[in-house]
């Protein structure tokens, strides 16, 4: 595999409408913040997909290690009492 020599990689997060969560849209190359924002706009926002964009240098993201998956995620699997399933949820609170 040849080395990626096309500038730095940035991760793009986009908000589809005001108040909505920012969702990872993909990644782009850019040499600085302004270019990153413009490239994110030009790559992921051409068809009215978003109302706001965040760009983050990929190098600034700390990711969990797959080897730690057992320690990180498995303990939550068998503790049903962590979930609020034993309560009667009020009407209207559908998204919990």
């Amino acid at each position: 595999m040849t080395a990626d020599n096309q500038l730095d990689v940035w991760e793009v997060f986009m908000q589809s409408k005001p108040g909505a969560n920012y969702i990872h849209a993909g990644s782009i190359h850019a040499s600085d913040k302004q270019m990153a924002l413009q490239n994110a706009r030009d790559t992921y926002c051409r068809r009215g997909e978003g109302t706001s964009i965040w760009v983050v240098p990929s190098s600034a993201i700390v990711a969990s290690n797959p080897e730690d998956n057992g320690m990180f995620f498995d303990p939550a699997n068998d503790k049903i009492y962590r979930h609020p399933t034993f309560y009667v949820m009020p009407e209207g609170a559908k998204a919990i």
Binding site: Q6, I28, H29, A30, Q38, D42, T43
Partner: peptide
């Protein structure tokens, strides 16, 4: 020069 600029 590169993909993103192509789109721009």
């Amino acid at each position: 020069p590169f993909l993103e600029e192509d789109l721009a």
